[in-house]
Design a protein around this nucleic acid. Structure first.
Lengths: 201, 201, 201, 201
DNA sequence: CCGTAACCGAGACGGTACGTCTGGTCTTTGA
DNA sequence: TCAAAGACCAGACGTACCGTCTCGGTTACGG
């Protein structure tokens, strides 16, 4: 399955790589993940199949890299949350942006495909988390620590779990398509997470 | 894909159905979702392929039904949350139970397989939500309304979103395997969700 | 390589078999043996590749059977040499006919292909000899024995070797394309073989 | 297919050529003609693929040259038949030697491979005949003419056809593996060819 | 006798075909 | 008279080679 004899990456064709990224993303968007085949990607990219098998171990790996490449282009390194001093406002802004991104049909196909692949295949999942989720989560953590420092968050809060209070419900709703993702939803989420469901004492 | 001529369900072989359920679940657990094939299920169940195609439209559908059957056996209709009057305690109990269930290796294979299939295939996803998630969510909603009635929750809370505050983070962590699911995690989640991340006024 | 689980020949599709024979012969004639591929045969016959791999172990085997089928149609069992009482005349007649057949461009492609395959692959060669050469050789042997009985051949002659004296040179010339095969050549061969190269005592 | 820009043969690496010959012959002997690949030859010879493609147009061409080289080493130019004055004895000697050579397993693989390639590919066949068969045939012709001069052969005999009377059956038996090649067979062949199958008048 | 043109080993490339596996459909056959 | 068995068409899988190409490195011509 995987290549045993490792190829010489210096001689790799940049042209082919880019063509493969584009073909992979296009196909996943057009026909879905399962009907996207390596053969199809190769044909569309004008590339020999072996060129794919030489550099990637699986369809999921191709797609992950293609997606990372796309993400890198889109958000030019900007993995930092705004910090206006008003935690609630900042979170609303970010979550609304996330909602918009998740609703963007261009990203939907590849994102769902990767998420699903990661759910089933631990290897892919680990890559997915490390490359895509982790940077985002850490940006949240930094913002929450900053809030904690200025007394907008309870001291001693487990930042990771705190982050999940925002991201978890959003992801849940998106993955399972239970109800639509709206800006209002994002706002409510921020409200509930910050001030709790219990009545104020 | 779907059968045109609908078969006569009265003449259906109960024996075959049970054998298919068992074969499907066993295979998913043993070799994973993607390597589980309809052919393999048929062979293991000692059943003709057509017997599967006659009654189910896809591999995911077979598995969904098999899983529902399993779930029905396990939790004999008990889709009600405890109500001791102490919301926090009740939630901790339930979430801890969910954590245990998600950590149970016997359920992991089929569950992940179904979740992944649902993420990618809207049809399967809808079924998954309707048959598996919705009853659970509604049980939560009933419990939260009861809490609201006795003043343990802020009035006017959107119950669906409130539920997601508990379920979302849990699911997120399980699906993406970011960090282990523990009882302490469940407790912290209840704490944060009920009382919020912001300092009490 | 070969099928392990032997298929049920009663359920075999006659339609597919015929289509495969025709496609194979057509392709060999049109593009030659090496450029004839199993995929090509399947495509041309409108048949799945597996249907070929299910019933034949190799490209050569397909072609051999196709060729035998063709030969069976052409020469309806008539594997008997003429016996007018004049051995020399009868042999001239038969060898001239063989010359014509070998010169027939329609048979050339498949024949050469099979011969070559048989030269290299002992299995195919054995089949080739058994099914195509042997009946012909035995007809020769019967004719030579008949000639021996009436004193037109030396008594005690090794009939097999005698046959090769006629067939060998012809095949040699055809296979290696050293010089053209003509009726005169056939006649000379009969002359030399019957009466020898040495001067009559 | 063929090189357009003709390479400078003065700068050719003798080392590589020899290594390629050896690798080619070894592979053909070990795994057979069809499973011998240019990549395999290159790898075994420790040579770049291009070095083969630069100097030879095809796998068959490589093998032909390798075989010629081998033949040149073995029979140091000795393409002359013995002439003791006794034609029958001389022919028996030569045909027995040929039988031994054909039965030599070391030569079998490459010989069959080349013969088969020549049967199917006219270009290779022509080379095969010109380089390997023709010198041998002409040696036979010279010996037969000498015999004719001393009255051991009928005058006016077509020498080419006469030669085929000896070589043809031998080749036939070897190529088609009908029956084993023995010294007795060679002797009988000489007997029959010289004195004919018909009874002496 | 030095620069450079061509060979060399190596191997990535776009392709084709391999032989296998599975998906769905259709047909046969035995209980 | 079904349902198992499994043959069928279709096509993707991952591998092996094809013949071309490009890359450095190393000879050995020829100015």
């Amino acid at each position: 399955m995987a290549e045993t004899r490792t190829p010489d990456s210096r001689r790799r064709s940049e042209r082919s790589r880019r063509a493969i990224y584009e073909a992979a993303l296009a196909l996943v968007t057009e026909v879905g993940y399962t009907r996207t085949t390596i053969e199809g990607i190769a044909a569309r990219a004008g590339v020999g199949k072996q060129t794919i098998y030489r550099w990637w171990p699986s369809k999921a790996a191709v797609l992950l890299e293609a997606f990372l490449d796309l993400a890198a282009q889109t958000s030019e390194g900007g993995t930092e949350l705004p910090d206006t001093g008003d935690l609630a406002a900042d979170l609303r802004l970010v979550l609304r942006a996330t909602v918009d991104e998740l609703n963007d049909p261009a990203h939907e196909g590849p994102s769902r495909a990767l998420a699903a692949a990661g759910v089933v295949d631990a290897e892919v999942g680990a890559q997915f988390v490390e490359k895509l989720m982790e940077p985002q989560i850490e940006a949240y953590i930094r913002r929450l620590r900053s809030a904690e420092a200025v007394g907008q968050m309870r001291a001693g809060t487990n930042a990771r779990i705190a982050v999940e209070l925002f991201i978890g419900p959003l992801t849940h709703r998106w993955l399972l398509r239970t109800l639509p993702l709206t800006h209002e939803y994002a706002d409510t989420l921020v409200e509930y997470a910050l001030h709790g469901l219990a009545p104020r004492a």
